[in-house]
Structures are given as structure tokens and as C-alpha cells.
Nucleic acid binder design. Structure first.
Length: 400
RNA sequence: GUGGGUGUAGCUCAGUUGGUUAGAGCACCAGAUUGUGGUUCUGGGGGUCGUGGGUUCGAGACCCAUCAUCCACCCCA
């Protein structure tokens, strides 16, 4: 038997309904905020992701679906959505044109990882990217949008917020942190000792209790922001408070990549296991120039669709449409014609086998039909069709 | 890449210290006197016990390997 690859799932009923339900409503909300749909290729040149991610950690070497195609090109299945959107943005020269550009997207992403709860090799994201606005009002705006989406689906979440500073305040902070880490290096766990070399601010992510205690007195980003970043962050907080959005400042919320700056946020939920982030985002004012465009402020977020689907309930579907069944061979063809006609206005399925009335009623019930329409000897003789309303339990006989 | 758990019917699982034809519930199909669904009752189909080796007179049970899956670590764009 040929099976789906590890970490890749088929989308079948009843999950498929959740998926469509989510995409339709999330898209509608994004449009309300002035965002337009964008579709970018699933396959991109590897260089795009290498440049956006940097040479950071395991990502490039271990976790990307990278291969050489038949033309000898080094290509990669997209591991996330932002890089492709930014690439398209620059390629279309929106960066030179200036102004405001807002996009939303959704689709499959690929990461070569060991699957676990809330983590697949092929998964789906719904995301938005806003280009051209440096103001914290836009940060607030997209957080509100994300909140509106999660609220629409009745998700229970906590909003975590932090500021990552900028090229003015981040490097000196990093120095200070390094100095601190040098001092406690010997007592840190193995992983943190490695993090210190590869990606120092990631030490705050460590799950080891000893490390957490050790890092308690470490210098924090929040207390080391430059004036511009501090003002930006305070304005955002003020807006969120005026909108009655509750949030937690989480000084441990960090991003490993260099292009992130200022606002970082995450919506987390308790019942997702270790992968508890259902959506995350933030500001990335440097990415457009990293990828060769003219410097353009940008902010966005992405939702993990599978993770969110674990938490939403789709409204029960009601009985709908018709089921057509025949009681004898001669009824089959007239029944087929009647079914086709009915389908101009309703959802219609038909049983192609001759069965007892009882069997047809059962089949109609199973198909979730509201009406069961049957042709047998009696109807054939009079040119009519018998219809039962399965909900009201009433019966009528109509002209064919 | 590392560690642990689990693989028996379509699904959820049971299967005594190894013992002869491998079970249940749900689902599916068919009946319960004449053309009336969801409930109930009866019957039926369906299993190379993940795969390959090994131990044994005998393995679904024990051992080894392998694959898959789940959870966690690493990583997290």
C-alpha cells in the first residue's frame, strides 16, 4: 500500500469543512481591514529563504525541503509565507512605487521536521503582510484583526507581547547579554551554552528550570530599548488598552532572526501541547532591504491553520436537499431525469440501485438529505413522484 | 538528529503465566410477512495480529531488526 509521506495529511470529512469554514471567514475579515489576496509559488529559489533566514541554526541545513531540480536549480519548498510575499513585492517594484500595500495569503508550507502534536511536515498558514507603514497604529491594527479572527472562531487564547528593539538598541543589548552569559556560562545547560554561541537571545526560550532561575537577573530587551522603540511600544500598548485588548508582556518572547525588530507578538493556547502558539507575528522593517529591495517598513502575522482547527467547532450542518431513489428498473431513467432537473435549484444525490422504500429512506437519511423522492410502480403509472420531508415527516405526490 | 509510548476488523479497543477454529462495541450490508428513515432485535461480510527474522513441539503474546505512528527534546522562519 502506498501511503502519504510522514508528516503529511489528507484533508477529508469532517475536517475539510472546518478548513473551508476557517479560510472563508478569515479571508472576509482580512478584506475588511483592507488586505488583498496574494498567491505566490510554493517552490522558490533556495537563496530566497537562505537570505531571509540567514545562516541561522538548524533551519537551512536541517529543516528545509531543499533539492536540485532537473534544470540544476537549487530550489526549496516554502517553509513560511513571508519571504515569498516580500520577494513578489520587490519583484513587482512596489518598494520603489512606495505607498501602502496590504496582502493576505493562505496555503501549504513545508518543514522537514519530526512530527509531533501541532507540527506537521506539510501544514497550512493563513497570514497577512502590510508594507509601507512604520506607525505603531498598523501594529495595533493587525493585532486587532488577528484577535477578531480568533474571536470569531471562539478561540481561547493569551496574547503575548514584546519589543525586539532595532538596530540602534539591539546590538548594545546583545553585548550586555553576552557579558552576562559569560559570567554564568558554566552553570548553563548544554543547549544554552550552544545557544549562547549561535543565537544568544534564544536562551530565554530554555525549558530547563535551572536555566530560568539563572537567567532571572539577566538584562532584558524591554529595559534596554532606545527612545524610538520605547515610544513605539508604548503607543502600541496604549492603543491596545484603549481597545480593551488584554495582553501580557513576555520578556522571553524572542525571535531568532535578524530582520525582526520592534513589535513581536504571539497568541498562545493551553491545549495545544508543546507547540502552543496558534498565531504569531511582528514587525520586520529590515526584511525588504535584506532581500534587495528599497527599505520598506512592514508588519504581519501568520496563523497555524491545523493548530487553530484543533480548537474550532463548526456549526452543525442541517439536512439539506434531495435524495432520489427508484423502486424498480423502469423508474431508474425517469428518476435520473427528475434528479437532474431538481439540481437546478437544490443539492441532489441519487441512488442508482433499485432498493426497497425502506432502504431508500435509510439512504436519504444517511446522505443528510431533507427530502426523499421516490418513483415506484404507482408513480410510474400516474407520471408522478412521491416526496417525503424527512424533517417534518410529511408526504406529497408531485407531477414529474 | 535524540529519547520514550503504541502498532490486533473500516474505527475504538480486549486477548489471562506462550496452547489448538482471534473476540467485543461502533460502523457497513441484509432481514424482522405486502411501499415508510433515525430507535430496537436477528443475521451477515470483513483480520497475511505493521513487516522480516529468531526462540519454541507450539508465538498475537517472548527476543532482535525494520517500518509506521504518537508524544517530548533539538529547532521554531
Amino acid at each position: 500500500m502506498i501511503t502519504a509521506l510522514r508528516g503529511m495529511k489528507d484533508l477529508l470529512p469532517p475536517q475539510n469543512r472546518k478548513f473551508v469554514y476557517f479560510l472563508e471567514n478569515a479571508s472576509a475579515i482580512a478584506r475588511k481591514y483592507g488586505f488583498e489576496f496574494i498567491e505566490t509559488p510554493i517552490l522558490e529559489e533556495t537563496a530566497l529563504f537562505k537570505r531571509s533566514v540567514g545562516e541561522s541554526s538548524d533551519i537551512v541545513g536541517k529543516e528545509m525541503y531543499q533539492f536540485i531540480d532537473k534544470g540544476g536549480h537549487d530550489v526549496c519548498l516554502r517553509p513560511e509565507g513571508t519571504a515569498g510575499v516580500v520577494r513578489a513585492f520587490i519583484e513587482k517594484k512596489y518598494d520603489r512605487q512606495g505607498g501602502i500595500h496590504r496582502f493576505f495569503y493562505h496555503g501549504p508550507m513545508f518543514r522537514y521536521e519530526r512530527p509531533q502534536k501541532g507540527r506537521l511536515r506539510q501544514f497550512h498558514q493563513f497570514g497577512v503582510e502590510s508594507f509601507g507603514i512604520a506607525s505603531p497604529f498598523e501594529d495595533a491594527n493587525i493585532i486587532l484583526m488577528l484577535k477578531e479572527i480568533l474571536d470569531f472562531f471562539g478561540i481561547d487564547y493569551t496574547l503575548k507581547l514584546n519589543s525586539l528593539g532595532c538596530s540602534t538598541c539591539m546590538p548594545p543589548y546583545r553585548e550586555r547579554l553576552m557579558t552576562f552569559l559569560e559570567g554564568v556560562e558554566k552553570e548553563l545547560c548544554e543547549d544554552c551554552q550552544r545557544r549562547k554561541e549561535t543565537n544568544p537571545i534564544r536562551v530565554f526560550d530554555c525549558k530547563n528550570e535551572a536555566c530560568r532561575i539563572l537567567l532571572e537577573p539577566a538584562p532584558r530587551l524591554g529595559a534596554n530599548l532606545c527612545e524610538v522603540c520605547d515610544t513605539h511600544f508604548n503607543t502600541l500598548r496604549d492603543l491596545l488598552e484603549k481597545e480593551d485588548v488584554s495582553y501580557e508582556i513576555d520578556p522571553n518572547l524572542v525571535r531568532g532572526l535578524d530582520y525582526y525588530n520592534k513589535t513581536a507578538f504571539e497568541f498562545v493556547s493551553g491545549d495545544l501541547g508543546a507547540q502552543n502558539a496558534v498565531a504569531g507575528g511582528g514587525r520586520y522593517d529590515k526584511l525588504v532591504s535584506f532581500l534587495g529591495g528599497r527599505e520598506t517598513p512592514a508588519v504581519g502575522f501568520a496563523i497555524g491553520v491545523e493548530r487553530l482547527m484543533e480548537m474550532i467547532e463548526v456549526p452543525e450542518t442541517k439536512r439539506e436537499g434531495y435524495y432520489f431513489g427508484a423502486l424498480n428498473e423502469d423508474a431508474l431513467t425517469p428518476l435520473f431525469l427528475a434528479a437532474t432537473k431538481q439540481r437546478r435549484s437544490d443539492k441532489v444525490t441519487m441512488g442508482y440501485e433499485v432498493k426497497s422504500l425502506k432502504a431508500h429512506l435509510k439512504a436519504a437519511d444517511k446522505a443528510g438529505a431533507r427530502y426523499c423522492a421516490v418513483i415506484g410502480e404507482n408513480e410510474l403509472a400516474t407520471g408522478k413522484i412521491w416526496v417525503k420531508d424527512l424533517e417534518a415527516k410529511t408526504e406529497t405526490t408531485r407531477e414529474l
